[in-house]
Write a protein that binds this DNA or RNA. Structure first.
Lengths: 340, 340
DNA sequence: CTGAAAGCGCTTACAG
DNA sequence: CTGAAAGCGCTTACAG
């Protein structure tokens, strides 16, 4: 591969002149520019992006770690939606995405810190659902800017973040089920150690409290975001002496598992039991019965996070502030008035 | 951020010694190593990955361009499956993924060439479905190694690639439908300019020919991989004087659209008409009726492609050879014997 | 085992 | 507008 000096030699100019032609923002005479461009073309020269990055201390790259810690991560619509939002904005701003895998929640942080510390990216989007105070503290120490998808712990409320209003959204969903006459309502969360799952649980509890309903602990279950987790949750909760007449699941995959278990048990949906999913994945509307689901705009959330990050990078400031996106319940065929 | 010289100064050694401690593969006395590590820790030093990349001419990064050219790209299971396979292998080998968006098929090539030429990645995975001879030629000129997901044009048959056996797989699916008694079988392709869609069409034609069935041109339609495309295909094909009794769709999204259109027209599936999708997305089994679909292991295909690329990079050779993964038809509830 | 030096391929402040 | 030089932060062949 040819370098800037090869081109310079061929065009009979100084390497710095070649650099100026390619970096764009310098006054160069037309004659020189043409000579350089011709030489570059002849040598098939393209400036080495890594060398440029080292020199200008900018990679035009945003880092993101993909957890895929739970089974079915790549079957859920969360991942493609996040990637879609991230790619739209990075592409539009001339940025790329540096994506790393990881093998556990703790490794997710290790990978994040590594990208931050080694400056392979100009900024990073953190999607971990399990950030504790110390972890966020560690992340902040690094000079590389970051934006969270999800709320930070209170002690770090000034870290930039974007998220849905999980607690309030879930409260409204549960309130709607109560409005439909349901009182024995199950909450099927994902990973209980995850912030979003805790926030949704709080919304659930709040709505139940407001509805004057004492929560039976057997109604709270966790399916770890997996289809089978939803299935198992039905097996357990329906065995209770106060079986739920409605299920709220923290993603659609679990809702699908719930529907499968109910079908097996010949419990009619929505006549006997109602089911609500979360995320409104593309298939939700195509299921039969079509799944009622809380539509969370993860695509927009990710896009907003990327934009906040890029803006901060461009202005060379620490990203701050937060944005909350509201979600809407898309009522389809799995919810109805409580029987009896 | 501190550099190698800050650490060197603090530890009272030469910068090269610090480098040796961090690059791992050099003999360093325990005493020195400890001093350096202590100094590094005190200064929160982490080697700059970009500088290292420039020096060793390795980025430990694989490039990939995400087309999302067609509507619904992020709703299909193709993307998450590819990413999943890519991430598994890159992560296991200490690599990362450099992902770029693009806005058209031609821009996809532009982006690919750019990553190749500017050496931001050690290799690249090309997923474009529309590679012509010249484009592949251009890509090959670059020194950066590449592996295709999908077959290259014949003139470049020595370029490394991984794919399913699209033609043969589709031939078998159609043969199966013929075995079930169907003769008026529709082929609903994605983007007709795409190689995979042409290959599948060939398999379709071959099976029809073997079955002694003259193909009615009205049975061949294109839904551009979108749900609505499948829906429209039914509107057109059912208006024909020889309406199909079976539909083969080149992805599940279109199959879902086909099912929707048939439901609207009150055409019973599978009693009156059979439907087969492709890719066997997670939702296929959860639809009602559950969708019969050709299971294509894009996850494995992507993983194999990444592994071929990384192996070649590590051995510093041009990737060569190819791997073909077989697909299997998962028969569920949308296929049955042809009535009458 | 450790140091000193040259180099990876760019950029940019400083002169002129 | 262009050149000469120093620098971005590492690595590594060469000595010793």
């Amino acid at each position: 591969m040819s370098t800037i000096r090869d081109v310079a030699a061929k065009a009979n100019v100084h390497p710095s002149t070649v650099s100026r032609v390619f970096s764009g923002n310098a006054r160069i005479s037309d004659r020189t520019r043409r000579r350089v461009l011709a030489a570059a073309k002849a040598l098939n020269f393209q400036p080495n992006a890594i060398a440029r990055s080292l020199s200008v201390r900018r990679t035009h790259t945003l880092g993101v770690i993909v957890p895929h810690v739970f089974k079915g991560y790549f079957e859920d619509s969360f991942f493609p939606q996040i990637m879609s939002g991230l790619l739209d904005v990075t592409y539009a701003n001339g940025y790329r995405l540096l994506v790393s895998g990881c093998e556990s929640y703790s490794d997710e942080i290790v990978q994040t810190l590594q990208i931050l510390a080694t400056r392979q990216a100009d900024g990073i989007i953190v999607t971990s659902g399990r950030l504790d105070v110390n972890t966020v503290g560690e992340l902040r120490v690094q000079a590389t800017p970051l934006v969270l998808i999800g709320q930070p712990p209170e002690q770090h409320s000034d870290v930039a973040w974007v998220d849905a209003d999980n607690c309030e959204d879930t409260r409204q969903v549960i309130a709607r089920l109560i409005e439909l006459g349901h009182r024995r309502i199950a909450y099927v969360g994902g990973d209980p150690d995850t912030r979003v799952v805790k926030e949704r649980l709080e919304g659930y509890c709040r709505a139940m409290h407001e509805g004057g309903i004492a929560v039976d602990p057997s109604w709270i279950d966790y399916g770890y975001f997996a289809e089978d987790g939803g299935y198992q949750a039905v097996q357990r909760t329906q065995a209770s002496s106060t079986p739920p007449t409605a299920y709220y699941a923290a993603n659609d995959l679990m809702a699908i598992g719930i529907l499968r278990a109910l079908r097996e048990r010949q419990i009619a949906v929505p006549d006997a039991v109602s089911v609500v999913g979360t995320n409104d994945s593309p298939e939700a509307g195509h299921l039969s019965p079509a799944l009622t689901s809380l539509h969370v705009s993860y695509r927009e959330i990710a896009a907003a996070a990327a934009q906040m990050l890029i803006d901060a990078i461009k202005e060379d400031v620490t990203p701050t502030g937060s944005r909350i996106f509201s979600s809407t319940l898309v009522e389809r065929q799995t919810t109805a008035v409580c029987p009896g």
